[in-house]
Simulated scan of single mutants.
Amino acid sequence: MPEIITIGDAMVTMNPLRRGPLRFSDTFERTAGGAELNVAIGCARLGLSTGWISRLGKDEFGRYLKHFAQGEGIDMSHVSFSQHAPTSVNFKEINEDGSGRTFYYRHPSPITSLKANDIADRWFGSAQIFHMTGVYPAIHPEHRAVMMELLKKAKAHGVTVVMDPNIRLKLWDADEAKETLTSFLPYVDVLLTGDEEGELLFETQVPEEIAAQAQAYGIHTVAVKMGAQGSFAKRKDQQHYCSARKPRKIVDTVGAGDGFDAGFIYGLLKGLTLEETLTFANTIGSMVVSVSGDNEGLPYLEDVLAILNEEKTIER
């Protein structure tokens, strides 16, 4: 049984082979993407036992995604195929500085046929962490009731709930996102948010103020991701700022937040201090942006430790 479980759809990601406006891109490479899948992959590569809950289209893209995730060592016992919707696809636009946009083709998503009673209680009985994001409830209004049922299952089994708001305003508007995500906060133990998402939820980008408002819901640990400015975390009466680790080169910023989440979850499970956890998570974020793709840059544990221990790499 996995110690970490997460729920969300996955997509075939089409990465352009040239940079600039998508309308000028005519050649793409097919890869796998999806916020929750990225976190599952990140945790698995760090040596953590990870399970993913999802539904894929019963098509060639769905088979590709399932085989890919299985190859990463993720428990796929709660991933099934749906004949009622094709596997979701997204196309990425990447600028010269590594920033970009994503264009989604995911309606209807095959995961919409998934119901709360499709997920065995025993998974929550053995898990230590239930990771969730704001992407899954944004895809379809019916997902919000499913998520609430899963949160109640997690709390009933004493599972730590980790939430990344991961707000995608292409999927829902700001008011809808705020109302839905704040309704989940009483069930959350650990909040991993970006500063802009913190502003949407709590009307402030000041990390200490975000943490104070989140803790009013009973959340015991809050981390605020601030990109090149580093990160901040507060756990009860402890708090710490951590500078960003400078990446070798910024190639593609997609997936950096997912990598941070995986690193923070690793720190939680391994009993690292708040400072050690932030340093570990920031390091993974900097490694991810140095590689093109949603999850290609997610490192293995030995790679992170080599950077933290400043080991020299033997290239040849």
Rank of each mutant, 00 (worst) to 15 (best):
E29V: 14
T31V: 14
A32R: 08
A32N: 09
G33H: 08
G33I: 01
A35D: 15
A35T: 15
A35R: 07
A35Y: 01
E36V: 12
L37K: 09
N38H: 08
N38K: 13
V39N: 10
V39R: 10
A40Y: 06
A40K: 08
I41Y: 05
I41G: 04
I41E: 00
G42C: 07
C43S: 10
A44D: 08
A44G: 08
A44H: 11
R45C: 14
R45W: 10
R45P: 12
G47A: 03
G47H: 07
S49C: 04
T50A: 12
T50Y: 01
G51L: 05
W52L: 13
I53T: 06
R55M: 15
L56V: 07
G57V: 03
K58D: 14
K58W: 00
D59V: 05
D59W: 05
D59M: 04
E60C: 06
E60D: 14
F61H: 09
G62L: 05
R63N: 10
R63A: 03
R63I: 01
R63H: 14
R63V: 05
R63G: 09
L65N: 06
K66S: 07
K66E: 02
F68S: 12
A69S: 14
G71W: 04
E72I: 05
I74E: 04
I74C: 08
I74A: 09
D75R: 11
S77C: 05
S77V: 01
S77E: 09
H78I: 02
V79F: 12
V79Y: 02
V79P: 06
S80K: 10
S80E: 11
F81H: 06
F81P: 02
S82R: 01
Q83P: 04
A85V: 12
A85L: 11
P86W: 06
P86Q: 14
P86S: 14
T87F: 04
T87A: 12
S88P: 04
V89F: 13
N90K: 02
F91P: 05
F91S: 04
E93Q: 15
E93S: 13
I94P: 09
I94N: 01
E96D: 15
D97R: 11
D97Y: 00
G98K: 11
S99R: 09
G100P: 14
G100Q: 07
G100W: 13
G100S: 11
G100A: 12
R101S: 13
T102N: 09
T102H: 00
F103I: 15
Y104G: 01
Y104W: 02
Y105R: 03
Y105S: 06
R106V: 07
H107S: 07
P108G: 03
P108H: 00
S109K: 02
S109C: 12
S109D: 08
P110F: 04
S113V: 05
L114D: 03
K115W: 05
N117G: 03
N117L: 02
D118P: 04
I119T: 08
I119N: 06
I119P: 13
A120V: 11
A120W: 07
A120Y: 12
D121I: 10
W123G: 07
F124H: 06
G125H: 06
S126T: 11
S126P: 01
A127H: 11
A127I: 03
A127D: 07
I129T: 09
F130S: 03
F130P: 03
F130Q: 11
T133D: 00
T133Y: 01
G134S: 01
G134I: 05
V135A: 07
V135P: 01
V135N: 05
Y136M: 03
P137A: 02
